[in-house]
């Protein structure tokens, strides 16, 4: 099997709030011929709500610093979070083409002994799985087919948009994550406004907890339209929004309890990897789902 190596950019939420997702990525990817290596010292991407929202250059330098770590490793960077992917790829695109900004960034980076060179590419994990590894390989890697199980796929905004820069998917008719989910045997169901926001990003979850839940509730109402057995996403912030958000809504008396999975968690379970390392942490219960369909406690 051809092996490809990637620099794994984990961001903040996966390593520090959902390390089981991190395990699921670390354990599934090598089985598909994609080795992932730690980006030692990588910091926050940083987020759009804070740094990018006050000063473009301070966003750029922190992103450039992260990219420079992967450049030093001479490996393409794989982001496992939509937000990280969006801002890192955006930075990479911008600095590759804009000499003036590149020089400005490098002047500052030089103070900490780093340099942005523009030598690597930034990918989203979905692109690696779909474009580099391929559906067939994934189909062949699984031990259990979840035929007949309905999944509501949520792409999340920053995997798709702005498509001019990200170029990961058709922004109005994405298909890669659906194809990946269907490779595991699940049916990716239609639901209205599939491409709309979960309501977490841009600082909204922090700035306005009330509104963030309202937007999520609308999203969930649309998802419920198709009565899926689970929600699948490839973004930890969307995952967190669905996971904690449903809990928040339940606390307000609403009936939302759809199991949520990060894609590689489902992939790992289908490959027969142990649940207790890859799908443990969630506020919205999903043990029932795992027991029912994977037969593991």
């Amino acid at each position: 099997m051809a092996v490809t190596n990637y620099a794994l950019y984990t961001g903040c939420i996966i390593p520090l709030r959902y390390p089981d997702i991190e395990n699921s990525i670390r354990e599934t990817m090598p089985l598909l011929g994609a080795n992932v290596y730690d980006m030692v010292g990588a910091g926050c991407c940083p987020p759009g709500g804070a740094f990018w929202s006050v000063d473009e250059i301070s966003g750029l330098i922190q992103s450039a610093r992260n990219i420079s770590i992967a450049e030093f490793m001479e490996k393409d960077l794989v982001a496992v979070c939509n937000g990280c992917f969006c801002y890192l790829k955006n930075t990479n695109m911008m600095l590759k083409s804009d000499k003036e900004k590149r020089e400005k960034v490098n002047t500052i980076l030089n103070n900490v002994g780093r340099k942005y060179q523009g030598t690597i590419s930034v990918y989203h994990l979905v692109e690696i799985l779909h474009d580099h590894i391929g559906i067939e390989k994934i189909k062949n890697s699984i031990k259990l087919n979840l035929d007949g199980v309905k999944a509501a796929v949520h792409y999340g905004c920053h995997l798709l948009r702005p498509s001019d820069h990200l170029m990961a998917e058709n922004p109005e008719k994405p298909h890669k994550l659906d194809a990946l989910v269907e490779a595991l045997g699940l049916e990716s169901v239609y639901y209205p406004k599939k491409l709309s926001c979960c309501g977490a990003g841009g600082g909204m979850r922090g700035n306005n907890p009330e509104v963030t839940l309202k937007i999520l509730e609308k999203k969930l109402m649309n998802i419920k339209y198709s009565e899926p057995d689970c929600i699948v996403t490839a973004c930890p912030f969307c995952f967190l929004q669905f996971d904690l958000g449903q809990k928040g809504l339940r606390e307000k008396g609403e009936d939302f309890c759809i199991p949520v999975f990060y894609y590689n968690q489902l992939l790992g379970l289908s490959m027969g990897l142990p649940k207790n390392r890859i799908a443990v942490l969630s506020e919205t219960p999903r043990d029932g789902f795992i027991k029912k369909y994977y037969g593991v406690e």
Binding site: C12, P15, N23, D38, G41, P47
Partner: peptide, 28 residues
Amino acid sequence: IYHLGHAVTVEKGIKLRNKVNAPLLKTA
């Protein structure tokens, strides 16, 4: 981010990592 290198607290993160047997944290 300025003080921890991350948008979220690290201390809680490490506890969770231990709970799921995640490898040693190597990020910022």
